[in-house]
């Protein structure tokens, strides 16, 4: 058994004839915030969905705390999907209650305090909220759990810069030492100071894996600049 929070061994995923993840071998330790970076369509969302147990591998293995994703891993994996899944008829307050019933590790008071900070009205119907406010609420719900693994698929794309700062600070101050946060994003300059490590993905594989400071030391560049170089069109 390894201590990895997320591990893949020869992971392979295809949709029909189209290969999306190809022979991926990664091992992500506990206590780190890790950026999953790469251009659109390189397989970031597929990897996250495999870890969340929403998709199953075509071949190879993906393990969360040593276990194939199932109902048990879902109890300690907190997943923020790319798109909203909350019903528009719900209020933010009822969404909090729903999460609180569903997840034993959910902290309602933390959620309400973050909502107050970010100006999310608990009694407004979700369908009346702006896209950015809905995104804030979803991230609040996901970060109010005490999970082992947080899977955040493009968590800050739709929110304004001030809320982005608050959200990044929320991630810094909320994750525990035994948990790992995997964040997929293309907003690298906003997020790179928050990361321990990063993975560059390209066409279903990992092309670079390093600590942020390791790469800065080696290349004398920010991860944002490095990304532009590696993925130059």
């Amino acid at each position: 058994m390894s201590d990895a929070v997320l591990e893949t061994r020869g992971l392979y995923k295809a949709y029909g004839p189209r290969t999306v993840i190809s022979d991926m071998n990664i091992s992500l330790p506990a206590g780190k915030i890790i950026g999953l970076l790469g251009p659109n369509g390189c397989g970031k969302t597929t990897l996250i969905k495999l870890a969340a147990g929403i998709l199953t591998p075509t071949d190879g293995e993906i393990l969360v705390c040593g276990r194939q994703p199932d109902e048990v891993t879902r109890s300690f994996v907190s997943y923020l999907p790319e798109r909203t899944y909350l019903s528009g008829r719900m209020t933010a307050r009822s969404a909090v209650d729903y999460f609180s019933d569903f997840y034993a590790d959910f902290d309602s008071s933390r959620a309400h305090s973050m909502m107050a900070h970010l100006g999310v009205d608990p009694d407004a119907k979700l369908k009346t909220l702006s896209k950015g406010t809905k995104e804030k609420l979803q991230l609040i719900l996901v970060m109010s759990r005490a999970a082992r693994l947080y899977l955040l698929d493009e968590p800050i794309g739709g929110v304004d810069p001030a809320a982005r700062e608050y959200i990044l600070r929320t991630i810094i101050s909320n994750y525990a030492e035994n948990s790992t946060v995997l964040i997929s994003t293309h907003l690298i300059s906003d997020i790179e100071t928050v990361l321990d490590d990063f993975l560059f993905m390209r066409s279903g594989g990992i092309v670079m894996q390093s600590s942020v400071d390791g790469a800065r030391e080696k290349y004398g560049k920010s991860i944002d600049e490095l990304f532009r170089e590696v993925y130059r069109c």
Binding site: G31, K32, I33, E165, L168, R169, I172, S173, T193, V194, L195, D196, V212, D213
Partner: peptide
């Protein structure tokens, strides 16, 4: 953790 929050950086980086 407070310093990391203030600087908006990873706590492990601040520790270092």
């Amino acid at each position: 953790r407070d310093l990391a929050f203030d600087a908006k950086v990873n706590p492990n980086t601040m520790q270092r």
